[in-house]
Design a protein around this nucleic acid. Structure first.
Lengths: 189, 189
DNA sequence: GACCTATCCTAGGTACCTTAGGTTAAAACC
DNA sequence: GGTTTTAACCTAAGGTACCTAGGATAGGTC
């Protein structure tokens, strides 16, 4: 019986792909083991258990997501930065539904702190706001508003929450423009 | 062995309470059966299975939610209606996290159509917009924007997505005011 | 009091997570 | 090249949960 040569990273990466294919909530050790032609108990050599695997996927997703969002904001400002950030956000959520769902999985605080991903995402958010010149605590309120709208739209879209006969792209564009307007007029609200 | 007198409605109602207590995703037939002092197999007399039970909770949650949101909008318009709707939305989401999570559970189309809840919620949304006088398709875009922001904020709040040291109530107030501003200025965006 | 219905039961199958301990492939060492 | 060590992958088994099949019986009807 030759060895497959599993590693923790290979498992987590494959698990992320599985999650994108069948949904993060349907990710199971059994299906992952089957993908590698291995018994599910064998996975415990590389991973503490299902929740550990899920945390790994969550951290990986955060890192990949941070990369995408950071790229979108880099070299842009104002409306262009906001639009690029928003589109990258939604593209990640719809293009990688399993990974996106994983980003909502609770991660142990010490691991979260060790990871760069979350910090880079928050950093990208604040960088994006720099062009709108908001003082604290308005900047935090604005970041929360942006995240809420982006996450809410993406989540509702992913779970089939929108049923009206109207282009989702068009509604999205409108929402982003509305946020831009809000940010520019922030002090007058 | 005396009979407990279970009914489908009693099961679903209790399941909704269980979901609020331990989370909709942790709702299980075993814990529900234990709550009634009954074997889990006995529940199948009243419910087709776990997914049927979950659908029942989802429909119940939609109905209760529609009631709350309808009450909030009734007799109000403009900013007052928006604020009341928003606060009722968030209060339901944070006060009944299990029921709120259930509203995101996929429901069979024919059951969804038979239920009044969803229709009443959408109706409340459009009623709320009446004061802002938006033509289609802007009204649909606006409804989607409102739902996205409310859902995103509530979901992120419920799952611990906001970590900054800033009052959530204050950020929420700001978000709602921003939406009001957006709706009043809609044609100029 | 006998009968019927439907409630609740036991028994058992499947799937998944997890632990314990054994084999052996593959690397490390002499 | 042969021996030792490491750890990858295994089998076995226990726990929990969903679900089906079929039996016992409470509670109502006649």
């Amino acid at each position: 019986m030759p060895r497959v040569g599993l590693t923790r990273d290979a498992l987590i990466s494959a698990a992320a792909d599985v999650a994108d294919e069948i949904g993060f909530e349907h990710l199971t050790l059994a299906v992952l083991a089957k993908r590698f032609g291995v018994r599910d108990a064998s996975l415990y050599t590389h991973v503490r258990g299902l929740s550990d695997l899920m945390e790994g996927v969550a951290l990986l997703a955060h890192d990949e997501w941070a990369e995408v969002l950071g790229q979108a904001v880099a070299g842009r400002s104002g409306h262009a930065a906001l639009t690029a950030f928003a589109d990258a956000y939604r593209a990640f959520a719809t293009g990688h539904p399993g990974r996106y769902a994983a980003t909502r999985y609770p991660i142990a605080p010490e691991r979260l702190a060790a990871s760069q991903g979350v910090a880079r995402i928050i950093e990208a958010c604040y960088a994006l706001l720099r062009g709108y010149d908001l003082p604290e605590p308005d900047a935090t309120d604005a970041v929360r508003l942006l995240r809420s709208t982006f996450h809410g739209f993406s989540d509702l879209e992913a779970t089939g929450g929108f049923t009206a006969d109207r282009s989702l792209d068009a509604s999205w564009r409108r929402a982003v423009d509305a946020l831009h307007h809000t940010l520019t007029e922030w002090s007058r609200i």
